[in-house]
C-alpha cells in the first residue's frame, strides 16, 4: 500500500507538465531535438535545419494536426531520440520515477533511523551526555539554547 502511495505521488509530480491542447510552433518545438547534429533542443537551435523544422511544424499545425500527431510523425521518421524527453511508458518510466522514488524511500529510511536513535531506549547508548543528572541536563539544555540565540 505504501509503495502504491509513493508511486502515485511520484507520478503526480511527473505528470504536472501536460501537452498543450492547441499546438503552436513554440509549444511543439520544446518537445523536439534539432536534427542537425548539434545535440540541442529545437527551441534553442538557430541553424538552417532548425528553421526548416519550424516551417514544417507550422505547416502541420495549419493542416490541423494535434501536438501528439506532430510528435508521432517525427518519432516515426527519426526514432525516439528526436523527442527532448523520454516518453512516459515502458522502460522509460524508470527514468521518470526512480529519482522521486529514491528520494522518498531514502527519506523514509532516514526518518525511521532518526526516530529510532532519538528513542529513549537507544539514548542510553548514544553518548555521555545522557548519563547526566536530569538537573544538570536541564541546565545544559538552557545554556545550549541560550548559546544558540547568541552565537554560532
Amino acid at each position: 500500500m505504501k509503495t502504491f502511495i509513493l508511486l502515485t505521488i511520484s507520478i503526480f509530480f511527473i505528470a504536472v507538465p501536460v501537452l498543450a491542447e492547441t499546438p503552436t510552433v513554440s509549444s511543439v518545438e520544446k518537445h523536439l531535438m534539432c536534427t542537425c547534429g548539434c545535440t540541442m533542443p529545437l527551441y534553442t537551435c538557430e541553424c538552417q535545419k532548425s528553421e526548416e523544422m519550424r516551417t514544417e511544424i507550422k505547416q502541420m499545425i495549419e493542416r490541423g494536426m494535434t501536438q501528439q500527431e506532430i510528435l508521432d510523425s517525427y518519432v516515426s521518421r527519426f526514432g525516439e531520440k528526436i523527442l527532448s524527453a523520454p516518453t512516459k511508458k515502458g522502460f522509460n518510466l524508470v527514468a521518470w520515477i526512480l529519482p522521486f522514488l529514491s528520494v522518498i524511500l531514502v527519506g523514509g529510511v532516514l526518518i525511521k533511523t532518526v526516530k529510532r536513535w532519538s528513542h529513549p531506549e537507544t539514548k542510553q547508548e548514544s553518548g555521555p551526555s545522557e548519563k547526566l543528572d536530569p538537573k544538570y541536563l536541564e541546565q545544559l539544555e538552557n545554556e545550549l539554547s541560550h548559546f544558540e540565540e547568541k552565537g554560532e
Binding site: 526514432g79 525516439e80 531520440k81 528526436i82 523520454p86
Partner: peptide, 12 residues
C-alpha cells in the same frame, strides 16, 4: 537511442 533533455530535468 533516446534523449533526456530540458522537459525531463525541469519536471524532476
Amino acid at each position: 537511442k533516446i534523449t533526456v533533455g530540458p522537459p525531463f530535468f525541469n519536471s524532476v
